[in-house]
Nucleic acid binder design. Structure first.
Lengths: 132, 132
DNA sequence: AAAGTACTTTATAATGATTCTAAACAAGTG
DNA sequence: CACTTGTTTAGAATCATTATAAAGTACTTT
């Protein structure tokens, strides 16, 4: 199984549940955005078994910490994640409440001129809100 | 009272509670970031009376809809608001969990090259995450 | 392979922010 | 003042997320 090593490298034991979650998240042609609830539904559909919500939360957070997933900064009642962990940005369609990827090359270079002493920049994320 | 007209113009009745909230939010030299809970505490301290949390929520959301407040897109368990409604951006200091304003002039111009049919851009917000 | 340990999963309970409800109240209008 | 409409309120309800602790599984050591 191709995800066993990925998990091992992160100090996570390759359990049946984690492997199933990996398949849903990473065994696809295109990256996608999801909430925990979405993901739980997808797993149930694909593998025809239910993984405890607590496990889905734990695993997603472990993956996020390891850099396999990214949290998307957006104001919503639910937390959105992205399987696209490359440096990129987002449109947020307000009327449809949907996220759309914005490739890095679709946004001109961003120059942050202000510096904060003793801190370094970890990420620069742009959220472009869309209305009709 | 200087906020009465502001409220009236927005179709909001100038009630005692709304005026008190206005004073806490807008009667200050510098703009600031806050959560609903922060705001409720500030009101209690400044006016020495308690406004129902439900009212604080209602009023903040009404103000946000009218453009008197801005929601800050950030992943946190609580929603952050900003009394600075001008076009600007934010640093988010991950270790101190604190927001810092980034003036528009501190960020080079942002050029969004991709267009979505039938949608127009409402806002462009940059979140710069800081680590130690 | 058995035994021991450390990590995982799970159902369920707990938490905490936010929203809803419906009754009491205040503001605006004639 | 009488009337309508908007507002406030405490408390209940909701919903995402986190904590708990018991049962299960993976890995290591013999």
């Amino acid at each position: 199984m191709k995800y066993i090593e990925k998990l091992r490298n992160s100090g996570l034991r390759p359990t049946k549940q984690r492997l199933q979650i990996c398949e849903v998240l990473f065994d696809v042609d295109e990256t996608f955005h999801f909430t925990i609830y979405d993901l739980a539904k997808k797993i149930k559909k694909k593998h025809n078994n239910k993984i405890s919500l607590a496990t889905v939360y734990n695993t997603v957070h472990a993956f996020e910490k390891k850099g396999y997933l990214k949290q998307i900064p957006i104001n919503s009642n639910q937390t959105y994640f992205d399987t696209n962990v490359s440096d990129h940005h987002h449109f947020y369609d307000l009327s449809e409440e949907k996220l759309i990827d914005l490739k890095n090359s679709d946004v001109g270079p961003i120059n942050i001129k202000k510096k904060i002493d003793g801190k370094k920049i970890k990420s620069v994320e742009v959220l472009v809100k869309l209305e009709d």
